[in-house]
Structures are given as C-alpha cells and as structure tokens.
Design a protein around this nucleic acid. Sequence first.
DNA 1: TCTGGGGTCCTAGGACCC
DNA 2: TCTGGGGTCCTAGGACCC
Length: 425
Amino acid sequence: MIALIDVNNFYVSCQRVFQPVLEGKPVVVLSNNDGCVVARSNEVKALGVRMGHPWHQLRDMADQYGILAFSSNYALYADMSNRVMQVLAEFSPDQEVYSIDECFLGLGGLASVYPDFTVLGQTIRHTVRQATRLPVCVGIAPTKTLAKFANHLAKKRPVFAGVCDWDVLSPASRQQYLLDVEVGEVWGVGPRISKRLNSEGIHCVADLARADPEQIRQRYSVVLQRTVLELNGVSCLALEDHAPDKQQILCSRSFGQPICRYRELAEAVSTYVARAAEKLRKQQSLAGGLAVYIRTNPFRPDDPQYSKHIAVPLSQASDDTLLLTRAALWVLKRIYRRGFSYAKAGVMLLDLQPRTGIQGYLFAEQADPLKRALLNDTMDAINRRWGRGTLRVASTGNNQSWKMRQNLVSPCWTTRWDEIPVAKA
DNA sequence: TCTGGGGTCCTAGGACCC
DNA sequence: TCTGGGGTCCTAGGACCC
C-alpha cells in the first residue's frame, strides 16, 4: 500500500501560517516577476480564477473581490517543505519526495504497526498541522496512480474529511467515483491525451480503467498503458526512495524589464550560470556541456521577434563557475543580435556526470584544478553563510537593472534572522 | 506596463556500424 | 522490374508533472 500526502494550496497555505489574518480570504501567490497566478486559495478557485492566469489581467477582479496577492517566496516555501517532509518521514522508512508539496510513503509491511490506515491518515494530518500549521490531505491505495486518485477524492469530497483509503471503499462506491471523475484528472493524463481519449469515447476514469491495456499501448504509449494497469491495482511505478541526480540543470528568468544591450544580457547570463553551477556542485556532478538561450517577448507580436539557443560541449567536464561563465558568454556572443528587446534568458547545464571517475584530459586548460575547486567551495561556503551573491563573478554586474520584479514579497519568516516573526505581549 | 520556472520520459527517424 | 538484415546511438519533438 502507498500513501500520497500533499499540502493543500501549498504556497498560499505557507503565507497563511505566518499571517493568520489571511484565513478565509481570497489569496493568490504569483510566479516570478509577479507574472502569473501559481497558487490559489479555495476562495479564489471558487471565483473561477484559473491556474497560470496572467495577474495583470486580473487586477479589476482583484479589486472587486479583495483578492490579496503575494510574490513567490521560495526561501519560505522550501523551508516549510523540508519541515513537512521531515515530519512525514517519521511515519514510514520508505519516502519518495515527489515535489515541493507532496510525497509518497510506502506502507508495505506496516499493517501491524498501523491496523487502520484511515486512522493513520488522520494522525498524519494532525501531526503535520501541529508541527507546521499546514493542512494536508492523504490518499491511500495499492498503486501510485490510485493513491493520487484517492488523494483527489480526499481533497474534493468533504465526506472523507481529508483522508481516503481506496481499499476500504466498497466496490460499488469505487465504481461510482471512477464514473464521476473526468479522465483528465488522472495522474499522467494531460490536456492533449484527454482530448484524444474523449474523441474516442473515453470520458471518465472508469472508461479508461476498463480499456484494454494492450490496445492503449498500441494506440497511445507505454506510459498510458501503465496508467491503465495502475488504475486496476497493478503496480507499474515503483517508489523511489532516493532522488536520482539531475540529468540537466536549468536556470532561466524573465527580466523585470526588457533589455537590449549585450552588457546587460551578459550580467543576467553570468548570474544564471552561477546559480546553475551551485546546484551542480551540490549534487556533486560535472557538466559535459552547456546551452544558452535568449528571447524577445512573444506576447508582443508586433515587436521584432528573435529567439536563439545554442548548445556546446565542454572540452572537459567541469563544475567551475569561472570556466562555465566563460563558455556561456562565448555562446551568448554568438547568439546575440543587436536591435531586439530581450525579455528572457536561460542557461542549461547538460550531459551531467558524477564527479568521481572522470577521465583525465591530456590537454587540460585549467591551470590548477584543485586550486579552482577550492575557490568554488570557498565561494559556496561564503554565500551559504552570508547570503546568495555575497561573493560573485564581476560579470554578474552591479546594478542588475534586469532583475525580476517581486513587489509583493513577504518576509522570509523562517530563514532570516532579521525577518523572524516577533510575538508581542 | 504587466504573461513562470524546472524537470522527466518516450518515440520516431536519421546516421552509422557490420 | 527487381536492391538485406540486424543492430546502436543520438537528437528533436511531444507529452507529461508540479
């Protein structure tokens, strides 16, 4: 048996933990640059605001209904996520952290510890609430896909009070739920596939569950075949208890305002490389290649449009910020065109490989790799202690006019001493 | 004025090998 | 008229997830 636990309206709930006055009010959290709605409270969902909707188009509505908006505060969400995962890890030795706000717990072999999984689910809800003030829902089932489905029911149907154990439902009520829910709600069935399924007579989850897996594989893909099997209780997706290393690392941002000059693009690209290289060193990998892209604003079709992306291999795999920066700026110089108004840039580290067991290179360009490694480690240590960007490469610039907008950001209540909440008597 | 960021997996098709 | 069989590796594109 597998449990799926996820936090309700995660980013919004994090904001509410430290601002209880937001409870019961319509609240949204915005993407970087205060661009799109990426989290909604139930009150906002009830108003019909869609996920990913551009915020600037909702201004009038926000005024009318008193919707409160916050910039994304990832320092806060990441810290709250760690707390939740730590609490949940106490309930099972098998935990797969699936995303910032959800995880699977393996319950196999724990039936003697937890004789009633519904009771366990309620205990989990209560414990997480107690430790973090965050609300979670729990779905329990024999496969991941069914656990996701059970979690969906736990969230949407008040009768479950936040916990749905698929196994204790009667066959008749299971069938009813499968009939009630649209196929597009199933984990792994996105908009494209559900449209196609609909056109072929598969509308609800029950339709998909009783489809012939072999035919589904032939007509769609092995991925959807697995989904069908999982809906029938045949486990095809294993619990992955330790996260595999990333195969690629991306850092990209839209700019707070459009920029034209190479100099400014170079600042942004240098900044993104530094961030990506930090992630790379954290997982102890080396990049064998790197790509850079820049683009204008596609939402202004009347402006001249340009978008270019080039990937290059490195002569020797590396995790050195200086070397990667030099390579990225080399690429940028080749893709930059004068006369465009750029809206976004990105850096991708490719062909990642473990730091150990690397083939040496006869014609190494780096003067002293050990010294350079020490430099990077020192830079990481300083930035960990004193804050990101305390020590950085000069090409990242000084005033950073392109920096993203974050006008509505809340304090980092849990990760900065000077922003820690104060209780007044 | 204003439209996010970061990933994964699978498949088809082409290049190449013997 | 008629042109094999069996394989690997790589890449681009499409789908999905949060």
